[in-house]
């Protein structure tokens, strides 16, 4: 395991921000830490990164402990990019590299990787928000860390910036690094994460694998030119236990599991040509809302 927490707790007076959290993050995963605002994601990351002192409980990095020298194997951004505003991107990375005791070994490489090489001499304060986020990723990547922790990396970015950031995260994941991604943007997590945990009021209410948790229940999404006729026909067919409309698509759930080709043939027999036929899948958003509801 890359990170294990055991009954990790943080209290601020009467408020319990993180409550006896047990978490295990396996090596090589892209792990999503989900939760609504105030659920304790950032406090949890703050604790495991040494910025916040736990009130109780413990955590271990790389199965050994939590000393500062282990943090040098981690690249992390908490909340928003934090740098010395008067220094250039390159100079800021130099400081990060010195702290990690790696000199300026791979600074140019990581600047190239995040696409900031051309602007490396500009002061940090002159960067756009997207550039600041990219510099933060570059800083996290300095000294070739084993784990990358990104807390809300797309906060404040425009759609293009979000796309670029997601692309960057996927590229990093392809290098085999373990990534912990805290976010409340579920679409983002669904697209890049393999495993995830959901926090609510400082407690972990669910841990799971994205792919297996989002597998559908054997239902199909179908579409044709005449949706009303399609719906009427589907309702008359005895093989379906439920038929419902979702925008301009029909969701049908067969009594028994049925292959797509058989389903297509069944409608062809009724004189209807399907223009779309795909397995229905839950979204992380549906799963998340369901989890929050059942854990109220």
């Amino acid at each position: 395991m890359i990170l294990e927490t055991e009954k990790l707790t943080k209290k601020y007076g009467k408020l319990t921000a993180v409550n006896e959290l047990d978490l295990s993050i396996p090596q090589g995963t892209v792990f999503g830490l989900l939760g609504p605002n105030g659920s304790g994601k950032t406090t949890t990351l703050g604790m495991v990164l040494g910025a916040i002192r736990p009130s109780a409980g413990q955590f271990k990095w790389f199965g050994t402990g939590n000393s500062p020298h282990l943090r040098r194997r981690i690249g992390a951004i908490l909340e928003h990019p934090v740098f010395y505003p008067h220094l250039s991107g390159e100079q800021n990375l130099k400081i990060s590299a010195e702290i990690k005791r790696k000199g300026k070994s791979d600074i140019h490489q990581v600047l190239e990787f995040v696409g900031l090489h051309e602007r490396k001499k500009d002061p940090f304060k002159a960067y756009s928000l997207g550039m600041k986020q990219r510099l933060a990723i570059a800083s996290a990547l300095v000294a070739d860390p084993d784990v990358l922790i990104l807390d809300e990396p797309t906060n404040g970015l425009d759609p293009e910036g979000i796309h670029d950031m997601r692309d960057l995260i996927v590229r990093i994941a392809q290098t085999g690094k373990t990534i912990v991604l805290a976010s409340h943007l579920l679409d983002e997590v669904q697209k890049v994460c393999s495993d995830y945990a959901v926090l609510k009021k400082g407690k972990c209410i669910h841990k799971g694998n994205v792919e297996s948790d989002l597998l559908g229940d054997g239902g199909w999404r179908i579409k044709s030119n005449d949706l009303d006729l399609l719906q009427k026909t589907a309702q008359e067919m005895s093989i379906f236990k439920s038929v419902s409309k979702d925008g301009n698509v029909l969701i049908v759930k067969p009594e028994n599991s049925i292959p797509g080709s058989d389903l297509n043939n069944a409608f062809m027999d009724k004189g209807i040509v399907l223009s779309e036929l795909s397995p229905s899948q839950n979204t992380l958003e549906q799963k998340f809302l369901e989890l929050l509801k059942t854990n109220q």
Partner: peptide
């Protein structure tokens, strides 16, 4: 003061500097 205001002290610690360092 700038280290406190800009939160760079926190980033230094996250990057692997001990608080005593």
């Amino acid at each position: 003061g700038q280290e406190w205001e800009e939160k760079t002290i926190r980033q230094n610690v996250i990057d692997g500097m001990s608080r005593m360092e």
